[in-house]
Amino acid sequence: MIATPRNAVVILLDSLNRHMLGAYGGTEFATPNLDAFARSAVRFDNHHTGSLPCMPARHDILCGALDFLWRPWGSVEIWEDAITYELHKAGVVSQLVSDHPHLFETGGENYHVDFTAWAYERGHEGDPWKTRPDPSWAGAPIFGRDHMPYHDSRGWFRDESDFPGPRTMTAAARWIEENAGWHDRFFLFID
């Protein structure tokens, strides 16, 4: 008999293909931390997504609705209950740690509201985190594209640990260190 897990940690890495991870046989990049995590976790070897990209995929995962063909982008509607709503009713603590700005902007509302708590690591993509570029940074070419908020934000990142992705994983690890032994059951969604 297999024991039912009491806790779940979901790591959603937007736009990362499984063939790039060592846990799935990838050799092009070193992914030692994710590989170690996969060795001690349940690894899905036959998973298919219903919707791509971005918000439709998150809607599939959190609401259990495969609706990309009729609803390509949108919020959790008031008549829908995300899995976090049901987990809350069952006494499971849920935490969202994300750097995904679309969860918090018009058109992506309500993904975080049923989590027990949530943390947002600022500065990714279209997140209007900074109102001006860092004057000490030379910048990067925008290749003819229109100005985006990320152009103002990315100059403030000095090394890898300043970028939203690494900050998100660090915040999630810190949440586990501070909370895993405190709660009887938890669901951690890292996005």
Rank of each mutant, 00 (worst) to 15 (best):
Ala3Met: 03
Thr4Arg: 12
Arg6Asn: 09
Asn7Gln: 02
Asn7Ala: 04
Asn7Ile: 02
Val9Ala: 03
Val9Cys: 05
Val10Phe: 14
Ser15Gln: 14
Leu16Gly: 00
Asn17Ser: 10
Asn17Gln: 11
Asn17Arg: 15
Leu21Phe: 09
Tyr24Glu: 04
Thr31Trp: 04
Ala36Phe: 08
Ala38Arg: 00
Ala41Pro: 04
Ala41Ser: 15
Asp45Phe: 08
Asp45Gly: 15
Asn46Ala: 13
His47Cys: 06
His48Gln: 06
Thr49Ile: 12
Cys63Gly: 10
Gly64Asp: 13
Ala65Lys: 13
Phe68Met: 13
Arg71Val: 07
Trp73Gln: 14
Trp73Gly: 12
Gly74Leu: 08
Val76Asn: 06
Glu77Ser: 07
Glu80Asp: 06
Asp81Pro: 07
Ala82Met: 10
Ala82Trp: 05
Ile83Asn: 08
Glu86His: 12
Leu87Cys: 01
Lys89Cys: 11
Gly91Thr: 06
Ser94Met: 04
Gln95Glu: 09
Leu96Cys: 09
Ser98Arg: 06
Ser98Thr: 15
Asp99Met: 09
Leu103Thr: 10
Glu105Gln: 11
Gly107Asp: 01
Gly108Glu: 02
Asn110Lys: 07
Tyr111Val: 01
Val113Thr: 13
Asp114Lys: 00
Asp114Leu: 00
Phe115Val: 03
Trp118Met: 06
Trp118Gln: 12
Tyr120Pro: 00
Glu121His: 07
Gly126Gln: 10
Arg132Leu: 10
Asp134Met: 05
Pro135Phe: 05
Gly139Asp: 09
Ala140Phe: 06
Gly144Glu: 03
Met148Cys: 04
Asp152Trp: 01
Ser153Ile: 04
Arg154Phe: 08
Arg154Met: 13
Gly155Val: 07
Trp156Cys: 01
Phe157Val: 04
Asp159Ile: 01
Glu160Ser: 14
Ser161Asp: 14
Asp162Asn: 04
Gly165Glu: 11
Gly165Val: 11
Met169Ala: 14
Ala171Tyr: 00
Trp175Ile: 05
Glu178Arg: 05
Gly181Tyr: 08
Phe187Ile: 01
Phe189Pro: 00
Phe189Ile: 00
Phe189Leu: 00
